[in-house]
Design a protein around this nucleic acid. Structure first.
Lengths: 220, 220, 220, 220
DNA sequence: TCATAAGCGAGACGGTACGTCCCGTCTTTAT
DNA sequence: ATAAAGACGGGACGTACCGTCTCGCTTATGA
């Protein structure tokens, strides 16, 4: 006797068309009306899809949005990679971290560059609304929060780990430093200002963070 | 010309009894069932209060919770102050920052002490649930987020500013450092780990943050 | 030991001003927004009166309206009496029945005249809205219904009884007829058409009713 | 151009089960607690139905009750017809008018019989509560009142029209009489006494009405 | 004559029901 | 079998009134 209860759907028969429409509708609604007013019914209606099609493949509104945002990020990354290929050497645009952090040998300069790009990204309204929504949901919903981090945040942070390790090898960072913690000295302040409106977000600010973190607060 | 429409209620006739009951119910429900399942109806029922009494004085569930939490913090602070007075010299307990950060002359030690207390506080379930709820709401609701920061977060951060300034005068922090930014080097990483589950929260971790921040990542 | 519970209010101290204002507001609201949307709060607000002043003196919305309508009828009657005095011999206007049904010796003519006046009255919007409201309430609320009848309807019907008795003495109505029942033959059909919209209300119709009732349906 | 706004529900998918449960609950509540205390929420709860299911198909409490009562009447009529078939010749029970008014050749006797049955019906508590409620609502709500009359009252009155016409052909009623008006001479008085508590309702009373109406009030 | 107690306006309060919006489930029909 | 469509039982929303309950504030005696 086979399992009886939820009977997982047959994903080979899944409608790609519907999935895309649902992603698009979800992102659009979050941008237009905000996360709390984005409803499953609303997404279904906008996507021209039955509600059951959503409930069949996702467990909650947050799940839909997380996948939609993941998909969006992948698209963006793919687009960026394409551009990168076409215009070799171009740098400094939002999303470019997916290609890794530049390594010019000047750690401070490389970090400032990347953080400035992040500042730009944080202000892009098309990214801001959904990522805020997900971050908020994640604060209160640990399971989702961990997925958000694992699938979106951590891969980005890993790029900093790589760059810091390279700097350690180059003797620009002390060897006893744990890069995974070190990166938080300049990334987390930016994150908190963005998440909690604890202060303005400017290039000057991120530059300062890098300087403080690298050189420390104590007199040398 | 006077405003005409909603006719604000007469706050002198407000029922103190109801207000307290609403605060208590709101906090209790958030702790017991979580923020999303905490409803205005539920708060009203638990507080033994009509719904209108809530809508009369607050604009939203988040408003209620913010005030309730503010009230809770004040109570805690008052209790702590009392204790402080009674048992002079006692230190290291959650909430003690309200009395300022200790200044023993050893900046690193003082900061580590306070951050360890914060770690404890972040794990106190009675505080964690409501403050997470508020933080989450604030991420997505800028108006509330700013109030949350102004009324709860910033006053706490100001204590760090004070301590850092004192350290500057003592020559333990470089004079060109902006203390309001400096404090983020060790506070924000902790905040982010807590908010986003980006890593474990331990005494060792916060100690490390203080060391990294004070001494910098670069070789001296 | 005196009675303890409701402690009836001291009617000598009652504010005449408020009572009048409440009557006016009640009638006006019923005319303007209809009975169901007329609320005690609305009456109080419009009358510039505290709600308690209404609850102190009346038991329900219907009570208020009944008294208000009674008062209105008395006023109208008084006005009509005045006019009657001033312009002796004038007849045929709404409300004139208070002065009794004319007795010209021609029963059919007298009844037709009075019923035509009633037709006019039933169409007067100032009377129609409140009397419909009271009638409707009385259908479903026996206690109020009986008061409505005893205080408003029956006194009017008694005038028909008087006129029919006079006709009996004049030999125009058979002596074995019960006038209280007889009057219903022409009054009730009009009442039902008005109450239940079972048919149009015209002079021709009431004239016909009188003829049918006096002469019977069977061939003579 | 298609209508756009409320998008009427698909009646083919309507739940017969729910409709019946709603009818039953509505009638039962009106009988048990009275019309004003019968609420949509109460009906929904008692019927085990979501409120929306009521709002989807009906516009108001009165609409629900009208349909419920119509349904009840149909059932009663069907039951009565069945009985009639089974026990040929049986007469004199409540509701039997649906099968028409008997025509024994004696108009007075036939009318008295039917009116006595109506007297019984008006006293049946299962019918009285809902029909009073509808009548009352209809007094104050013309639209509903007209539907009440058209769907419930007029069909019954038509039976009197038929019987009176037959009597005209038999020479028992004057040919110039309008049957639709004539019937009101005995039906409306009964209706008014019932609706407005203007007098007792007895067999003797209805018998008298028939006599007065047929023979007239004037001496022959 | 003046405290004192009533009626009064105002409106906050604990409640109930409203009519609406969504939730997540279920059923129907079509592809 | 998946999908669009949407009816369903249910729960919460935010609003409107209910009837009760204080609050001052007149106002009108009667000690």
């Amino acid at each position: 006797m086979a399992s009886n209860n939820p009977a997982p759907p047959d994903s080979t028969r899944r409608s790609e068309r519907s999935r895309r429409a649902i992603y698009d509708a979800a992102i659009a609604l979050v941008v237009e009306v905000g996360y709390p007013k984005t409803t499953i019914e609303g997404i279904a209606a906008r996507a021209g899809v039955g509600k059951q099609t959503i409930y069949r493949w996702w467990g909650s509104k947050a799940d839909v949005l997380l996948e939609a945002f993941l998909d969006l990020s992948e698209q963006a990354a793919r687009t960026a990679a394409q551009e990168h290929e076409n215009h070799e050497g171009q740098e400094g645009r939002a999303g470019h971290e997916s290609q890794g952090i530049p390594d010019t040998g000047d750690l401070a300069a490389d970090l400032k560059l990347v953080l400035r790009a992040t500042v730009d990204e944080l202000r892009d309204p098309g990214f801001e609304a959904p990522s805020r929504a997900l971050a908020a949901e994640g604060v209160v919903n640990e399971e989702l929060g961990r997925r958000f981090v694992a699938q979106l945040l951590e891969p980005q942070l890993q790029l900093y780990v790589d760059r810091l390790r390279s700097a350690q090898e180059a003797g620009q960072v002390r060897p006893d430093i744990d890069p995974r913690i070190a990166l938080e000295l300049f990334v987390s302040p930016l994150a908190q200002r963005w998440l909690q409106y604890t202060g303005p977000i400017t290039y000057e600010y991120t530059d300062t963070l890098v300087d403080y973190a690298l050189n420390g607060l104590a007199p040398r």
